[in-house]
Amino acid sequence: MDFSSTFRRGIWSAVLVLLLASPLSAQIEDHLSAYTGENARGYLDPLVSAMGTSLNGGLYRSGKIPKAGLSIAIEFPFVGLYFSDEDKKFTATTEAGFLPETTAQVPTVIGPTGAVIVDGEGGTQFAFPGGFDVGSFAIMAPQLRVGSVLGTEAMVRFVAFRIGDSELGDVMLAGFGIRHSISQYMGPTPVVDVAASFYWQNLKLGENSEGDDLSSTTNYSFGAQASKKLGGVLNPYAGLYYNSYKTDIKYTSEASGTPESTELSFDDGFVQFTLGLELNLWIINVWGEYNIAERQSFGAGFGLAL
């Protein structure tokens, strides 16, 4: 592997966002083109759900927010999850006028790579496309935290890039959130530091054959968190949040043999409970967390507090 190739791949990860973006942005439309409607929904569901879940990690740690004064932190959170065996297959139905109409257990987008072929009348056959054989999913995006005014701080996540003619295409993650100290109203020495917050994020991936975004996910998250600093270094924290996301997919289906613009929309809402531990080492913060929700995920990262 030459240096430029290594470097380019490194840049992918450095700025990067979505470690599964490669297949998503380009080849996924080829796979999807064999499907319409419910088949496409079943095919994509594990990946869309993983995106909706992963965006909610790494958003907060310490519940302590000063009432006033300048504080800046740049952070590099990483959130990942593993797919289960149930995520790898779904029940699909033949299309394109295939007779007799037949259902089969076939790969989802993260399932086995092999196509599944079923037999029909007169020696005809119908093939369901394979997946990408992916066991895990992760998001990594830099974020900037600035505070504070009246016990309130703001956080911004943003990364956008285009990888030329590679399979990655366009990727953009934009996010904004505010956190407000609740513990400032709990007396001079609250037992724990408590904060409430709201976050909005939008993740766009890839470009379809019509030049539009292949996938666009908008995510909202709100809830409260608490933390308690121990010994000046350890900072255990917990949070209870409600998260909702909506993902729109636009692609060209050729399931019937002729191109047809197809739109799918996924939405879901779920409660997430987070347990985490942060180490404050001078200006460097390192943390790990576990998120309990419909899909369990875990996060880690580090930041510089200036």
Binding site: T6, W12, S13, D30, P129, P142, E254, A255
Partner: peptide, 24 residues
């Protein structure tokens, strides 16, 4: 650190796949 991680991960964590695509 993230740049070093990225350079390492970018090279090491790419896996080859032969995926079966269906054209209609």
């Amino acid at each position: 650190i993230p740049i070093a991680l990225a350079l390492g991960l970018g090279g090491c964590l790419l896996e080859d796949r032969t995926v079966e695509v269906v054209l209609n």
